[in-house]
Design a protein around this nucleic acid. Structure first.
Lengths: 229, 229
DNA sequence: CGTAGTATTGAACAACATCAACAGCTGTGG
DNA sequence: CCACAGCTGTTGATGTTGTTCAATACTACG
């Protein structure tokens, strides 16, 4: 792997505080690969041979059962995914596919576990990462169980607004089809949900969203730091 | 805290491998408390001052939003809960209440973080615990998003059967009201779901379930190790 | 016993999914 | 550059699933 990419990875919270020596051990066995769009790079149920790091592009994590499929999350640069499976040496619970052309680092899980044993700083960073991911999933579950689909969409839009810088007009950043699956509904329902949100201060055209009444939207959405932040 | 309880806690995977010295540090600041049934011992949004360990009884973890409430999980002896919040020093995302009279150990989060920094064995155990909890929650999310409520109930019954030893008749172990909330439906819907499962080999009377056609149930439920184990 | 919570049932309704048709956009090859 | 294929998104009609509300049984426990 080119040295130039090391520095980018090194800046991640997960690798920031570990020793140079151990970082090099991790990087030595790793390699960068560039994938075209829509390639499945991880398959549910398979042994977790690598920890993945997205350097550019984006990756969808999804899961399947009984011919059905649901989008779990989208991973954007620069961050890692499937660390729990790597650490536990257990099968992947989700599949991953590139949404666009993406550069991805593959770090052998075995090396992750070895360094994890040797480097207390790294171990601590892993815990922080896992704890954060865990809390995110708790929020996801609360979102799913406590809110109806229209409320989930309303809150998603508010979150996306924040992510996009806070302006009252911004892009969705993922296709509606995938957003529907992420929010736990069908594309048709999502389409209708967008129309219903007109009554609560939101209009949309294509992938572009305009919040024309921020207050109305927030009153309807009831965003909550224990679910949305 | 009486020494006698130390040994029980010491056996937990989380504390098994750490040094005596550090274990004592954790126990020194801890205390056991016995709570009556239906007492709220942790409240969503509050700072996470303690890691909790259930020694006896049982505890429900639940979450609320906008006047609604949902059951997230039930914690039984001997295990811990809310470790992610303790480690991150972040607010609780769930509330906890005793379901019955319960003995609970309260370990100051500050001590957990201190020992975590000093004891690599403990750090590793924390990671394992977190990774396991994370994976459980991924499964929960898949269950919620990929399955209809009747399918969730069918799979729940199969899991409960396993937990109860595998016999074709067993107890539900939680009240139906709470089970409904845990499965993401109303009590009325659960009641109807039980009736519908008669067509798939299950009958129930009160809190007692009988699987009179195991094959039919499994064919309907499609249990899957990546969701149910 | 009586009371309070818990579960069941029925009827009406709302939310959401499904199916089918079509509109809009994008990229490709003639 | 246009025609067309392929995909995404929208819309309408319809059906299913699940909720709500209200009434009634059931159970446990004082």
């Amino acid at each position: 792997m080119p040295e130039s990419e090391h520095s980018e990875i090194r800046k991640l919270p997960l690798f920031r505080d570990m020793s140079d020596e151990n970082f090099e051990i991790l990087m030595r066995g790793s390699y960068v690969q560039t994938f075209p769009p829509l390639v499945e790079i991880v398959s549910e149920g398979e042994p977790s041979d690598f920890l993945h790091i997205v350097l550019s592009g984006s990756v969808s994590l999804y899961a399947t059962w009984n011919e059905r499929e649901t989008s779990m999350t989208t991973v954007r640069p620069v961050s890692t995914f499937i660390i729990a499976a790597s650490i536990k040496d257990a099968p992947y619970l989700m599949s991953a596919e590139t949404l666009e052309k993406s550069r991805i680092v593959l770090v052998p899980s075995q090396d992750v576990r070895t360094v994890f044993e040797q480097d207390p700083q790294f171990a601590r960073a892993v815990v922080t990462e896992l704890a954060e991911n865990y809390r995110l999933l708790v929020k996801t579950t609360k979102n799913l169980k406590l809110r109806a689909s229209l409320e989930r969409l309303a809150n998603y839009i508010l979150r996306q607004q924040k992510r996009a810088g806070g302006a009252n007009e911004f892009d969705l950043s993922i296709r509606k089809r995938r957003l529907a699956s992420f929010l736990g509904m069908t594309p048709e329902s999502l389409s209708r949900a967008f129309k219903n949100l007109r009554d609560h201060g939101v209009s949309s055209k294509g992938g572009r969203v305009t919040i024309f009444d921020q207050q109305a939207l927030e009153e309807f959405a009831h965003p909550n730091p224990l679910i949305d932040d």
